[in-house]
Design a binder for these strands. Structure first.
Lengths: 149, 149
DNA sequence: TCTGAAACCATCACCTG
DNA sequence: CAGGTGATGGTTTCAGA
């Protein structure tokens, strides 16, 4: 889908605050809210907008620790291995990557104890993986709302 | 802030779709929308809800490549180095981590050429860093809307 | 892309158990 | 004091221009 500057402005506004009323978006880009409604609908259709999500503080819901986990996958067992990872509670992202690791996870856990359990009782027990490395996130210095638009 | 099961249900609904009208949230949790309005307001105040964001497909806005970048920081130069990273266009997350890397970035770029520029003309030129490693994301297998609630 | 209108929703002051 | 009611002004949504 081809986006013009108007679409991009709408995206910027909704990326920053997804609950901005279309009527206000319309005011800010100087168009009618029917047009905004239209354009947003088309961008949702096309998959440009994948959804709208409340950003929930992990600590507030009981997750005190986040980490990246790099994994090496044994040849030929990728699919099976990935499927089982998806079912582990606390695994919130699974990426396939180049470089030192084949798979990079993002995980959340209540505390370091439950992170250890997650790693040693769930991930390490799964076969299909060799080596892993856990990089605990000590702090996040910057976290954009999404890609720059 | 103390969250009860009602708060958590509201969070689940808004994490999945931040534009759900409070009146519908109210219907689903069997309460009045005034109560939902109230609870959401309190959770925003308390920072449990950090915001609402449209999820924008990076490819649709011209970013064909995403990567994780691990960096080693030289002793005593952390603050200065982090500040300069934040100003590089395409750097969308900056995390401090334990393990092999001191800093883990998430970056987006138009293509591999501009990723190379980003790395060699911007990051590598900055002093305060030794070693770096770029892990290009070949694909994302799973991406949760946020922490499990 | 807009106008206009009906249905719908957010929000607030004020009750109620 | 958390939750509900009801009024009102704003918002969404859609047909038709």
């Amino acid at each position: 889908m081809e986006l013009d500057e108007t679409d991009r402005e709408i995206l910027r506004i909704l990326q920053e605050n997804a609950r901005t009323p279309f009527s206000e978006v319309a005011r800010r880009i100087d168009m009618s809210s029917a047009t905004v409604h239209d354009r947003v609908g088309r961008m949702e259709e096309a998959g440009v907008i994948g959804g709208y999500h409340a950003e929930v503080d992990p600590k507030a819901v009981g997750y005190g620790v986040s980490a990246f986990v790099g994994l090496r996958v044994e040849q030929g067992r990728e699919e099976d291995a990935l499927e089982r990872l998806r079912d582990i509670d606390g695994v919130s992202e699974i990426h396939l990557t180049t470089g030192e690791w084949d798979v990079m996870l993002r995980v959340v856990a209540a505390d370091t104890d439950s992170l250890r359990e997650l790693m040693f009782e769930e991930v390490a027990e799964m076969d299909g993986f060799s080596r892993s490395q856990t990089m605990i996130i000590l702090g996040t210095d910057f976290d954009a709302d999404g890609p720059p638009i």
